Amino acid sequence: MAEDIRAKLGRYKTAPFDSRFPNQNQTRNCWQNYLDFQRCQRAMDARGADAAPCQWYFRVYTSLCPSSWVSSWDDARDEGTFPGKI
């Protein structure tokens, strides 16, 4: 499985089409992939497993989300005021 994910990451150019978010506005797609990345990181850290599968979510949200949003969300997580459920 890890080899398959590494192969996909090697071919990665930009965020692929996600049928959950068919509209032009990709704000919800950005938000969901940010949350999925944080949840994946937390789950892998709890298991003590390699977090390589989480890199998919990371690449998707970094290609979709403005960096100012990501930095404000990171700051909110550090302060304990993040509105999402991770």
Results as ranks from 00 to 15, higher is better:
residue 58 F to C: 00
residue 75 D to S: 10
residue 39 R to V: 03
residue 18 D to L: 01
residue 29 N to P: 00
residue 66 P to K: 14
residue 64 L to S: 03
residue 53 P to K: 07
residue 25 N to P: 02
residue 52 A to N: 06
residue 21 F to D: 03
residue 40 C to N: 13
residue 81 T to C: 01
residue 5 I to Q: 09
residue 16 P to N: 07
residue 28 R to E: 13
residue 32 Q to D: 15
residue 5 I to D: 06
residue 57 Y to D: 12
residue 44 M to F: 08
residue 54 C to T: 04
residue 50 D to T: 03
residue 65 C to Q: 10
residue 40 C to Q: 11
residue 34 Y to L: 07
residue 10 G to E: 12
residue 13 K to T: 15
residue 7 A to V: 04
residue 30 C to Q: 10
residue 72 S to D: 14
residue 8 K to A: 07
residue 16 P to C: 04
residue 81 T to K: 12
residue 54 C to Q: 09
residue 47 R to P: 02
residue 74 D to K: 12
residue 6 R to A: 11
residue 21 F to P: 01
residue 49 A to N: 10
residue 83 P to D: 05
residue 45 D to T: 08
residue 37 F to P: 01
residue 39 R to W: 09
residue 25 N to S: 07
residue 72 S to C: 04
residue 77 R to M: 14
residue 71 S to I: 05
residue 7 A to M: 07
residue 53 P to G: 05
residue 78 D to M: 08
residue 19 S to M: 07
residue 67 S to Y: 09
residue 52 A to S: 10
residue 9 L to I: 06
residue 8 K to Q: 14
residue 32 Q to N: 13
residue 53 P to W: 07
residue 59 R to W: 12
residue 70 V to G: 02
residue 49 A to K: 07
residue 6 R to P: 01
residue 24 Q to L: 11
residue 82 F to N: 10
residue 29 N to W: 12
residue 56 W to K: 02
residue 79 E to C: 02
residue 39 R to S: 14
residue 61 Y to F: 15
residue 79 E to L: 10
residue 22 P to I: 04
residue 82 F to T: 00
residue 56 W to G: 00
residue 24 Q to C: 08
residue 12 Y to E: 02
residue 68 S to C: 04
residue 56 W to H: 04
residue 46 A to C: 02
residue 66 P to H: 14
residue 75 D to P: 00
residue 62 T to S: 12
residue 43 A to F: 09
residue 78 D to W: 05
residue 81 T to I: 11
residue 47 R to Q: 15
residue 76 A to P: 00
residue 53 P to N: 10
residue 86 I to H: 07
residue 61 Y to V: 01
residue 20 R to W: 05
residue 48 G to Q: 07
residue 18 D to M: 04
residue 69 W to M: 07
residue 26 Q to K: 15
residue 13 K to D: 14
residue 59 R to Y: 10
residue 7 A to Y: 10
residue 43 A to G: 04
residue 81 T to P: 00
residue 41 Q to C: 01
residue 73 W to F: 11
residue 58 F to T: 04
residue 52 A to H: 06
residue 36 D to T: 06
residue 1 M to Q: 12
residue 26 Q to H: 11
residue 23 N to P: 00
residue 21 F to Y: 15
residue 59 R to G: 02
residue 59 R to M: 13
residue 3 E to C: 05
residue 15 A to P: 00
residue 38 Q to C: 05
residue 25 N to M: 06
residue 63 S to G: 12
residue 75 D to I: 01
residue 57 Y to Q: 15
residue 77 R to G: 03
residue 45 D to Q: 15
residue 65 C to F: 10
residue 84 G to E: 13
residue 20 R to K: 15
residue 64 L to P: 03
residue 61 Y to R: 08
residue 32 Q to C: 02
residue 60 V to T: 09
residue 55 Q to A: 05
residue 56 W to N: 01
residue 3 E to N: 09
residue 79 E to F: 03
residue 31 W to A: 04
